[in-house]
Design a protein around this nucleic acid. Structure first.
Lengths: 261, 261
DNA sequence: CAGTGAATTTCGGTC
DNA sequence: GACCGAAGTTCACTG
């Protein structure tokens, strides 16, 4: 049988069903009154109330209240779940090894339990992120400006990585910091840091640049920047280039490319 | 009636139930085959597969696959959900105003739908965070060292806030940066920045400190630090004090305090 | 394993 | 509504 449901089960019936579901690595959905205790990286307690509990075959354990996107309590994948009965009360326990974390749920008045062997073989196709932006710029450097030649991706410096390093048409060095969302002051500061890191570093690119008496240009590349970032950019002599992250799914891209082959 | 369930409903039955549930501001749980399209800050597409859908009375909309703690697609609270039928297919649509985001779900082969008017009046009680650590240190400064006198909490400087500002028994200035988890290099850098911000600022504390020829001590306060942070701290002349965040629920604390009154 | 950084981060605070 | 920072962040990726 692919799935099973119990409505208003007794605690012993519920115990049997949950244990069976866990053994079968099924996905369990419950709607029940419960009380929750969490002890691990932090500590929390949630008194009696009706919640939705989701237990996944990968060990993920979620407890949702009727508000918020985030679960009120949870355990990550690979956690071990078990059900047990104590003093004629049903408990669920989810245990994580490192870091040691324990989630204990006391159940009462279960409205329903459903378990199912989920069939889902799809993965999310997505686009519109910093990485997509970087790919796009490496493929079409002119988006930044005419004559821009990217030379390195993820160029390592003291405090992190320069997203894209390159040169303009006059061979001035260009340091690009990409943001796929609106950039704030923190992005400008990050870029500033990379520039000074680079300027203080001992590397071929820099030596060549200095021997040719070229400039180092810092560019913040993002869809937009907020007002404070705008001011800071002008003070710091940094340039801003507005680029939107490509919102094109890989599959679409592939089809498009295939069409050209 | 407090809750309703349908197993293997036809699309029109499902439509009726969902519309009724949305009108009643109920919490909806579904287990169904579906296909998902998201367009907003990013873009994503998820092909047909069985998933669990959760729609909350606050407008939150979650789609869970059988893996991970995070939903594969979602909309935040205050989103508006509606159901509609097109070409004898049932769709769910969740719409957010700012930023404009749209989640569209095509449903097929619904295994079950449940809606319920959830009764939950409890909020999570929790402890073990940075704020708790700060509270604890303000109340018991000797945790840091004998003679430590905290003077300011969240003291504003150029690039942020100094968690705790104070003086040692010799009236040297102490700048504390708190972390409730293992501190890394980034925390040391943050502290360094606050120290230099403070040193470059124009304020009473600093003038007094300099006129008395006192030192400025930087302290990183966290349960532990990683190896890289350890090295950096020694280089930079910053001190590390190991403090664990208090794992004590407010209610417990209140009871403890009451017991002493 | 630990460490780094992005995320449709979410969420709560303040301005 | 924008901005800022914490979070049991989670997650993917690297060494």
């Amino acid at each position: 049988m692919k799935y099973k449901t119990l409505e208003n089960p007794e605690y012993d019936e519920a115990y049997e069903l949950i244990t069976e579901a866990l053994r079968k690595k099924a996905t369990i959905v419950m709607y029940t009154n419960c009380k929750v205790l969490y002890e691990g990286r932090a500590l929390s307690e949630l008194d009696w109330g009706e919640r939705i509990i989701l237990i996944k075959p990968d060990g993920s354990f979620l407890i949702h209240q009727d508000k918020k996107v985030e679960p009120v309590n949870w355990q990550p994948p690979k956690s071990k779940t078990r059900a047990f009965i104590k003093n004629q009360q049903l408990f669920l326990e989810s245990h994580r090894r490192t870091p040691k974390e324990l989630l204990t749920v006391e159940l009462d008045n279960i409205q329903f339990i459903n378990y199912a062997l989920i069939e889902d073989y799809e993965e999310l196709e997505q686009a519109g992120y910093e990485k997509d932006m970087g790919d796009m710029i490496m493929e079409n450097p002119h988006i930044i400006e005419e004559g821009f030649k990217p030379t390195y991706r993820e160029y390592s410096v003291e405090h992190g990585f320069i997203d894209i390093l390159g040169k303009d048409h006059e061979n001035n060095l260009m340091i690009l910091e990409l943001k796929s969302r609106k950039a704030g002051v923190s992005a400008v500061k990050q870029l500033k840091r990379y520039i000074s890191d680079f300027d203080e570093s001992d590397n071929e690119e820099l030596h060549q640049c200095k021997s040719e008496k070229k400039k180092i240009r810092g560019l913040l590349v993002a869809p937009t920047i907020d007002e404070d970032a705008k001011e800071l950019i002008e003070e710091e002599g940094i340039e801003f280039v507005s680029v939107n992250p490509p919102k094109e799914l890989k599959r679409d891209k592939k089809i498009t490319l295939d069409a050209f082959n």
